[in-house]
Amino acid sequence: MKFTYILAGWEGTTFVSRILENALDRDDPLVIPQGKYYLGDAGFMLKSTVLTPYRGIRYHFKEYTRRGPQNACELFNHRHSSLRNVIERTFGVLKKRFPIIASGIEPHYGLETMTDIILVCCILHNFLCGVDNNDSLLDEVDNELKEREEHNASSSQLREDDHRIGSSIRDSIADHMWRDYQNS
């Protein structure tokens, strides 16, 4: 539950896919190591380095309570959802730990200062993760995430070439997971 890359300074209403595209195209870009992938929700573009869930396939935990995954796509989405949950929890803990960045009140600082505050909060969060396991904070965040889970739906236009490669990678991972799942 630590941050590995921080790009602060965007408005809260900006689409995450636009921010990611900027992070990948900067002079000091976000570098996704070969063979590694970032997980994105349905609001992200499926790319060779950013894997999104299969659309129109069961995704959220509650959909698996009555029966387990029935095919490779469902298993992939189920595991993707499990990992995305960690990401959502991390942001929840950060905002609980440092209410200044979660406040709905208009900031009293300029953009540069607010950007610095976010960076410092993320750095402190990473440090605190190593020295302070605050389970009550995690429980509080988990309860809030359960309440918000129903409201996660968005779409974006996909780029064809990278989408095709990302789709192939995702299919390969899903098929591998499914074979392992069936054999265990």
Rank of each mutant, 00 (worst) to 15 (best):
M1E: 06
M1V: 04
I6N: 00
L7A: 06
W10V: 08
W10I: 13
W10N: 02
E11V: 01
V16H: 02
R18M: 02
I19D: 01
E21P: 04
A23E: 08
D25G: 00
R26G: 14
P29E: 05
P29A: 08
P29I: 07
V31G: 13
V31W: 03
V31F: 04
P33Q: 04
Q34H: 15
G35Y: 00
G35P: 00
G35C: 01
K36M: 09
K36I: 02
K36N: 10
K36C: 01
Y37F: 01
Y37R: 00
Y38P: 00
Y38M: 00
Y38S: 00
Y38G: 00
L39T: 14
G40M: 04
G40H: 02
G43I: 06
F44A: 00
L46Y: 03
K47A: 05
S48E: 07
S48G: 11
T49S: 06
V50D: 01
V50W: 00
L51S: 11
P53V: 04
Y54R: 10
Y54E: 07
G56R: 08
R58D: 11
H60R: 14
F61G: 15
E63T: 15
Y64N: 07
R67G: 13
R67C: 14
P69A: 14
Q70Y: 02
N71C: 09
C73K: 13
C73L: 08
C73V: 10
E74C: 05
L75P: 13
F76C: 06
S81I: 03
S82R: 13
S82Y: 03
R84A: 06
I87M: 05
E88I: 11
E88R: 09
E88T: 13
R89Y: 07
F91G: 05
G92N: 14
V93I: 12
V93A: 06
V93Y: 01
K95G: 13
K95A: 14
K96V: 10
F98I: 11
F98Y: 12
P99A: 11
P99S: 11
I101A: 04
I101D: 01
A102H: 09
I105R: 05
I105A: 12
E106M: 07
H108G: 14
Y109L: 08
Y109P: 13
L111Y: 06
D116C: 04
I118C: 01
L119R: 15
V120Q: 07
C121M: 07
C121D: 11
C122E: 03
C122P: 01
I123T: 15
L124G: 12
H125W: 01
N126L: 11
G130S: 05
D132N: 02
N133W: 00
D135L: 13
D135Q: 12
S136Y: 07
S136W: 05
L137Q: 15
L138M: 09
D139N: 12
E140T: 15
E140N: 13
E140L: 02
D142T: 14
D142N: 07
N143Q: 14
N143F: 06
E149A: 05
E150L: 08
N152Q: 03
N152V: 03
S154N: 13
S155D: 07
S156D: 06
Q157A: 07
L158M: 01
R159K: 10
R164F: 02
I165A: 09
I165C: 08
S168M: 12
I169P: 15
R170G: 15
D171L: 09
S172P: 09
A174G: 12
A174R: 10
A174K: 03
D175F: 06
R179H: 14
Y181F: 11
Y181G: 13
Y181H: 13
N183Q: 04
S184F: 08
